[in-house]
Amino acid sequence: MPKRVDYDQRRREIGAALLRIADTRGLQAASMREVAAEAGVSLRLVQYYFRTKDELLLAGLGYLGEELSARVERHIPRPPTPRGMVTGTLTAVLPTDAEGRRLTRTYAAYYALALAEPKLAAQHGATYPDLLERFLANQIRSAQEAGDVDAAHDPATVAAGLLALTNGLGSSVLGGQRDGAAAQAILTYHLDGLFGGSRP
C-alpha cells in the first residue's frame, strides 16, 4: 500500500523549496515549474497544493516567519526580561551566522518582489514587521514601567527605529560593509543608550 504523505508536511516541503530558490536566486526565478523542480515533484502536484503562485508565495512567507520566530525564541535569555526580549529579538534578526544570512537574504527577496508587485505588498507585505514592531513596543513599555527606560520615550517610535536600525545593519553585513560582530556592537551601543547601560 503506498505511503500517505501528510498534507501539511507536503505543503511545507514545497514551501521550503520556494524559500531555497528565494535565498539563492530570488523570487523572480520562482515560477511554479522551478519550485516543482527544486522540490523534486511534478508541476501538477505543486498546483494541487497551491492553486496560484500568490498562494504559494504567501504560504512561503508564513513559513519564513515561523523560522524567524523559532530563531528569536532561541536568542531570548531565560528568565526573560524586557531588555532581554528586545536584545534577543533584534540579535536574531541580524545576519551574524549562516542561518541569519539565509533568513535575511530570503526576506530581501520578498522585499524585492513586493517592490515589483505593489498588490502583494499592500495585502501582506507589512504583516510580520508590524507584529514585530508591536512586540518590541510592548517590551519597551514594560521596561518603562520597571524604570529601566525613560518614560519620555514613545515605545512605538523607539521600536520602529530599532527595527529599522537592525534591518539596515543586516543589509550592511550582507553587502560586506561590516561583519556580524561589528553590527552586533552597534546594536548593543544603541540598546545601552536606551536602557541606561543595564544588561539583559
Score class of each variant (00 low, 15 high):
residue 1 M to S: 12
residue 1 M to D: 06
residue 1 M to R: 14
residue 2 P to Y: 07
residue 5 V to A: 11
residue 7 Y to T: 06
residue 10 R to T: 00
residue 10 R to I: 00
residue 11 R to W: 00
residue 12 R to M: 06
residue 13 E to A: 14
residue 15 G to F: 02
residue 20 R to Q: 00
residue 24 T to V: 00
residue 25 R to C: 00
residue 26 G to A: 04
residue 28 Q to W: 08
residue 29 A to C: 09
residue 30 A to K: 06
residue 30 A to W: 06
residue 31 S to Y: 07
residue 31 S to A: 07
residue 33 R to P: 03
residue 33 R to W: 03
residue 34 E to S: 05
residue 35 V to K: 07
residue 36 A to K: 10
residue 37 A to C: 08
residue 38 E to G: 01
residue 39 A to H: 01
residue 42 S to Q: 02
residue 44 R to E: 02
residue 44 R to A: 13
residue 45 L to D: 02
residue 45 L to C: 01
residue 48 Y to S: 06
residue 49 Y to F: 09
residue 51 R to K: 13
residue 52 T to E: 09
residue 54 D to L: 14
residue 55 E to K: 12
residue 55 E to G: 15
residue 58 L to H: 08
residue 60 G to T: 02
residue 60 G to R: 01
residue 62 G to S: 08
residue 62 G to P: 07
residue 62 G to K: 08
residue 63 Y to S: 05
residue 66 E to R: 02
residue 66 E to P: 01
residue 68 L to Y: 10
residue 68 L to S: 03
residue 68 L to K: 05
residue 73 E to G: 02
residue 74 R to Q: 12
residue 74 R to D: 10
residue 74 R to V: 07
residue 75 H to C: 11
residue 79 P to T: 03
residue 81 T to W: 11
residue 81 T to Y: 12
residue 81 T to Q: 06
residue 83 R to E: 07
residue 84 G to D: 06
residue 85 M to S: 14
residue 87 T to R: 13
residue 89 T to N: 03
residue 98 A to F: 05
residue 100 G to P: 03
residue 106 T to S: 00
residue 108 A to H: 12
residue 111 Y to M: 07
residue 113 L to D: 01
residue 113 L to W: 13
residue 114 A to R: 10
residue 116 A to C: 13
residue 117 E to K: 15
residue 118 P to T: 01
residue 119 K to D: 14
residue 121 A to E: 08
residue 124 H to Q: 12
residue 124 H to E: 10
residue 124 H to A: 15
residue 125 G to Q: 11
residue 125 G to Y: 14
residue 126 A to S: 15
residue 131 L to Y: 12
residue 132 L to F: 09
residue 135 F to C: 05
residue 138 N to Y: 05
residue 140 I to D: 02
residue 141 R to F: 03
residue 141 R to C: 05
residue 141 R to S: 13
residue 141 R to L: 08
residue 142 S to A: 15
residue 143 A to C: 03
residue 144 Q to W: 10
residue 144 Q to L: 09
residue 144 Q to F: 11
residue 146 A to W: 09
residue 147 G to L: 04
residue 148 D to R: 10
residue 149 V to R: 11
residue 153 H to A: 06
residue 155 P to V: 04
residue 155 P to H: 05
residue 157 T to P: 02
residue 158 V to T: 15
residue 158 V to I: 15
residue 159 A to E: 08
residue 162 L to S: 00
residue 162 L to M: 11
residue 163 L to R: 13
residue 163 L to G: 06
residue 163 L to M: 09
residue 165 L to C: 07
residue 167 N to M: 10
residue 167 N to H: 09
residue 167 N to T: 15
residue 169 L to V: 01
residue 172 S to T: 09
residue 179 D to Q: 06
residue 181 A to Q: 14
residue 182 A to D: 11
residue 182 A to W: 03
residue 185 A to W: 04
residue 185 A to I: 02
residue 186 I to S: 03
residue 187 L to H: 03
residue 188 T to F: 03
residue 189 Y to N: 14
residue 189 Y to K: 15
residue 192 D to E: 09
residue 194 L to I: 12
residue 197 G to Q: 09
residue 198 S to I: 11
